[in-house]
């Protein structure tokens, strides 16, 4: 577990994480959602998690901070295999906290414009843009009517 009382670990009112915590968390999130091989999809750690956390409740920020404290600050310098193994161990020993970390990681990731456009979707919220949907093929309904048993008379 890292030492959250280090001098550099100062949390200001508009900074939910210290720079060391942010670096660690970024590396941690890139294990949870790494960049895609083709480079289209960013890793979760490449996104602006700090801005995301600023919009969250203090309880969420505290949980994320607590989750990251289970990892040493040298986590980013470890090999990919070691980092993956450490996250697996964390998910087993602290399942509730891991699930919160995962939920927030996915929440941050899948509302990000870069991610949405990488998926071929429009950036931003659904409204007022909306979506187009094909009307569908109703031509086989004639056969449905022919085959149907009909409603039960009373």
């Amino acid at each position: 577990m890292n030492d959250s009382t280090k001098d550099s670990n100062v949390i200001t009112s508009d900074q939910p994480l210290t720079s060391e915590q942010a670096e660690l968390l970024s590396s941690l999130l890139n294990v949870i959602i790494p960049p895609s091989d083709d480079g289209v999809m960013p890793g979760a750690g490449e996104l602006d998690l700090v801005s995301y956390l600023r919009e969250q409740t203090p309880e969420v920020v505290a949980t994320i901070r607590q989750a990251s404290s289970f990892f040493e600050f040298d986590f980013p310098s470890k090999s990919a295999t070691e980092r993956h193994q450490l996250v697996v161990e964390f998910s087993v020993t602290e399942p509730e906290m891991f699930n919160t970390l995962l939920f927030q990681s996915y929440a941050c990731y899948y509302q990000n414009d870069r991610v949405l456009t990488g998926l071929g979707l429009a950036a931003g919220p659904p409204f007022p843009r909306g979506n187009s949907v094909d009307s569908g093929d109703l031509t086989t309904l004639d056969k449905v009517v022919q085959n149907a048993k009909g409603y039960r008379r009373v």
Partner: peptide, 30 residues
């Protein structure tokens, strides 16, 4: 579902893992 719910439901059902295989599994579902 939308992308977030696809991912989180896929995680809980064991069909979309976190980690290296996340994107491939996600894209087969979403």
């Amino acid at each position: 579902s939308g992308p977030f719910n696809t991912a989180i439901q896929g995680y809980h059902s064991g069909r979309i893992p976190w980690g290296a295989d996340h994107h491939k599994a996600f894209q087969s579902m979403f």
